[in-house]
Design a protein around this nucleic acid. Structure first.
Length: 827
DNA sequence: CGTCTTTGGTGTATTTTTTAGAAAC
DNA sequence: AATACACCAAAGACG
């Protein structure tokens, strides 16, 4: 079937596809068309990666648009959202408009309502529904990419409930679900009332095999000799072998999957011996440039290690990398510049990075709940293997699992090569998931009685899958109890059927996209401020579920009268320069012996112990260190500290404290590389934590305003803490850091040179500005422009030497990671 | 025989990931 | 639970 023969698409689309080289539809695509994707029929397509799933979605969406409708494309990752958006934008020349909406990026200018195709993450869609985005009921087609993720315990339920809601709002909605090959695609199809297209067909051959000894044995019976000498590294040999086998004038790149970040990094380092010597001079030059970019973006060890590897044509890839670096690595790999990536499983699910050869080195990974090393899911391994074979470049793709002995080889064949992927199973009937979604469902009017709620939940995958009718209802009831106790929903059971309404706070929590348990924790913590001060009717809600604390505060120093510490009411950390170590605590201890003051650390701990913040875990010596810190700064915590000896939550409390202090360090301008060292995290993790904290603090601020019984000063303190996190600066730099292109470092340098505010920037001597910015004219001009200066031009301005000296001196310990002496003894 | 390198053994520490909100001159 | 790595001792290589 030829694209141009398809009816129902916008004029010219079929021809454009042929011009792109799509002469014939692939068999699964043809089956999809026969099933009616282009005529508004719902469809589940369970086919391997890279076998043309996207085109199926495009046919559905474009034909829907041609009929005057509007389409939504749901992805699991933000990075995927932008990838898809650019892909779909090629249809704009046929009059189809595309928009994107994710947590960090919203389509510019034009409002999403006017867009024909919208790309968004599942959480974002959920949030849009909760906040009543007007265009939701205009949708006629929804595509759910990677729908097998409904199996994920964390995020699956969101997708499941979101699809159910969309279908409820728009009864005739065409639903197209794209899935990897899974064990029970038919069940998904049944759930969505959709036709099913299932196929193993791939445009490029995929050969899967196991390497053991001196050869790879493929599942199809063929064999490839790859001898490994004694003492040689198995992975290295396979990577070298792929590189030395030329197919279209070039050797093939490899993707190595390992089970930890550390392994990814060390594997990449080792593989430089393979990739480095095989580079051309030109490649070497371009890689050096790329490495330089990576180095200059961040002065952490991680970045330095990555740059060192990249220079030699090898790279590692994991969530500890900053997203810019991840993208750089992916791009350079696609451009065939980087020859080999060693990655944690992130990469398998992420943006498209095909390789000639995929090597699955580790097939087990640590799982605390499981209590040891757990074998990867078949589905996961298949996803990794699916990355093998670059369309248009490779005649075939190879996926190789590694075994060190004959038994393992046998097991790998059994377990992965000859096995079907496991079925997806809904994880909806779990408390954390239902807590959130039950509240949202009630708050956004999808159900107003218990029965209504249950019948809504009947539209989920869980309901179509389970035989245990009672379980969902049982969990729902527990969750409803929880929500009622915490005042998020109100129940009225005067007649037989119980009516449900969301309270004001309940609505707020739902719209803020908070886990209700996070909200409860935050409200409780914030209220404790007023309670400790004896200022408000704190215990009012003392009937208390397990998470509303009814502590006895008798022994806390803060019990008694609440006196405001200073006129501005904002906690001041003092003017300590450079070294941030252990500030705050001491200063406030004395000033506040009899008044609970809301400090940044208090706020950071509050949000860090919330279930919406992913925990940093405690390493060896951390327990003692943070226990000590816990007592030292006891007065700063909002809410009661669990007992060290009797309370199992103490351990979690310490882990949260670790996160909280990381955030405090960030807000105290501690250097990025020092934070990574101190907490054993990557630069990407810092960003992640900071982002989440910012979001949660914003939510906390809203809650503090809307909920009764919270001291007004607490609102101010939370806002302050949030702003400092947002820019990563101390209080005195907040104004400066708000100027575009001025981050924490530049702000500090300007400040040291005597330019302390945005207004100063407009008036200051240009020479001083330029000096403080280390003579970077372009940056200086841009900054002055953003600060609103009339004449930002830096022509003929010479940098002021003393300003640059002051800036460097004043910020030496912050910028350049000197000053190690003061840090040396923290272990 | 002395020094440097390689090998092998023991003990210890460590272990993936993603999303959400929204604002000012 | 399994591995990587650091550390150390013993053995070997070489002049």
């Amino acid at each position: 079937m030829q694209p141009s023969s398809l009816a129902g698409l916008p004029a010219g689309v079929g021809e454009a596809l042929e011009a792109e080289g799509v002469a014939e539809l692939y068999p699964p695509q043809e089956a999809a068309v026969e099933a009616g994707v282009a005529d508004g029929e719902s469809l589940v397509a369970a086919v391997p990666t890279a076998s043309g799933k996207t085109l199926i979605a495009e046919l559905a969406m474009l034909s829907a648009v041609e009929r005057g409708g509007k389409a939504l494309y749901i992805v699991p990752l933000r990075a995927l959202a932008s990838e898809k958006k650019t892909e779909f934008e090629r249809w704009e020349e046929f009059g189809v408009t595309v928009g994107v909406s994710t947590g960090n990026y919203e389509s510019d200018g034009e409002w999403l309502a006017s867009r024909d195709i919208i790309v968004a993450t599942s959480e974002k869609v959920d949030s849009l529904i909760r906040n009543g985005a007007p265009w939701i009921d205009d949708l006629t087609c929804v595509v759910s990419d990677e729908v097998h993720l409904v199996d994920d315990p964390n995020r699956g339920p969101t997708l499941e409930v979101t699809l159910a809601k969309l279908r409820k709002v728009n009864p005739g909605l065409q639903t197209v679900a794209l899935s990897a090959t899974v064990g029970n695609a038919d069940v998904i199809a049944e759930w969505l009332d959709a036709e099913l297209v299932e196929s193993d067909w791939r445009p490029i051959d995929l050969r899967m095999g196991v390497h053991f000894g001196n050869a790879v044995d493929f599942a199809d019976g063929s064999k490839r000799e790859v001898p490994v000498e004694r003492g040689e590294d198995q992975t290295a040999r396979l990577v070298a072998d792929a590189l030395d086998t030329e197919e279209d004038g070039q050797g093939g790149s490899s993707l190595v999957f390992v089970n930890s970040r550390r392994n990814a990094e060390s594997s990449a380092r080792k593989l430089t011996d393979v990739t480095g010597p095989r580079l051309t001079t030109d490649e070497r030059d371009r890689l050096r440039e790329l490495a330089e970019e990576i180095r200059s973006g961040s002065d952490t060890d991680t970045a330095a290690d990555l740059a060192d590897a990249v220079e030699k044509g090898s790279a590692f890839h994991h969530a500890g990398l900053r997203s810019e670096d991840r993208a750089r690595v992916e791009d350079a790999f696609r451009d065939r510049l980087i020859k080999c990536i060693s990655a944690t499983p992130t990469l398998a699910a992420g943006v498209n990075t095909p390789a000639r050869r995929v090597i699955v080195r580790d097939w087990r990974r640590y799982d605390g709940e499981f209590g040891g090393m757990k074998p990867l899911d078949v589905l996961e391994v298949h996803q990794m293997c699916g990355r093998a074979g670059r369309p248009g470049l490779d005649p075939y793709g190879e996926a190789v699992l590694l075994a060190n002995d004959a038994d393992t080889k046998e097991e790998l064949f059994e377990r992965y090569l000859w096995a079907d992927p496991e079925p997806v199973r809904s994880k909806l009937a779990a408390e954390p998931a239902l807590r959130t979604h039950v509240l949202a469902t009630v708050a956004s009017g999808f159900a107003s009685t218990r029965d209504g709620l249950l019948s809504f939940l009947d539209n989920t995958l869980y309901a179509t899958q389970t035989d245990d009718e009672g379980r969902l209802a049982a969990v729902t009831d527990t969750v409803l109890d929880y929500l009622a106790v915490n005042d998020f929903v109100e129940r009225d059971r005067d007649d037989g059927s119980e009516s449900l309404t969301a309270t004001g706070i309940g609505h707020t929590v739902s719209r803020l996209y908070l886990d209700p348990m996070s909200a409860a924790e935050m409200i409780d913590g914030l209220r404790s401020v007023a309670r400790d001060a004896g200022a408000a009717t704190a215990g009012a809600d003392g009937e208390a579920g397990e998470f509303v604390r009814t502590g006895d505060d008798g022994d806390e120093p803060g019990f008694g009268t609440y006196a405001r510490p200073g006129e501005d009411g904002s906690p001041d950390e003092g003017e300590v320069e450079g070294e941030a170590e252990e500030t705050g605590g001491k200063a406030t201890d004395e000033a506040a012996t009899d008044s609970p003051e809301v400090t940044p650390l208090g706020c950071y701990h509050l949000v860090s112990r919330t279930p919406d913040m992913y925990e940093l875990y405690l390493k060896s010596g951390d327990r003692e260190e943070y226990t000590e810190l816990c007592y030292e700064r006891e007065a700063e915590f909002l809410g009661d500290v669990p007992s060290e000896y009797e309370d199992v939550r103490f351990e979690d409390w310490l882990a949260s404290l670790k996160t909280a202090r990381l955030l405090e360090d960030w807000a105290n301008e501690v250097d990025e590389d020092r934070i990574t060292e101190r907490y054993g995290v990557g630069p990407g993790d810092i960003r992640g934590k900071v982002d989440t904290a910012e979001w949660l603090l914003r939510a906390a601020e809203t809650l503090a305003r809307d909920v009764e019984g919270i001291d007004g000063d607490a609102v101010v303190a939370v806002r302050e803490a949030r702003k400092r996190i947002e820019y990563g600066v101390r209080e005195e730099l907040l104004d400066l850091a708000g100027v575009r292109n001025v981050g924490r470092k530049r702000a500090r340098r300007l400040f040291e040179a005597g330019i302390e505010t945005r207004a100063d920037l407009r008036e200051a001597d240009k020479a001083v500005v330029l000096g403080a910015l280390r003579g970077r004219e372009r940056t200086a001009e841009r900054i002055l422009e953003h600060a609103g200066r009339e004449d930002p031009s830096m022509d003929d301005v010479r940098p002021d030497k003393s300003a640059s000296a002051a800036a460097t001196a004043g910020s030496a310990s912050d910028d350049d990671g000197e000053g190690q002496a003061s840090l040396g003894d923290f272990r």
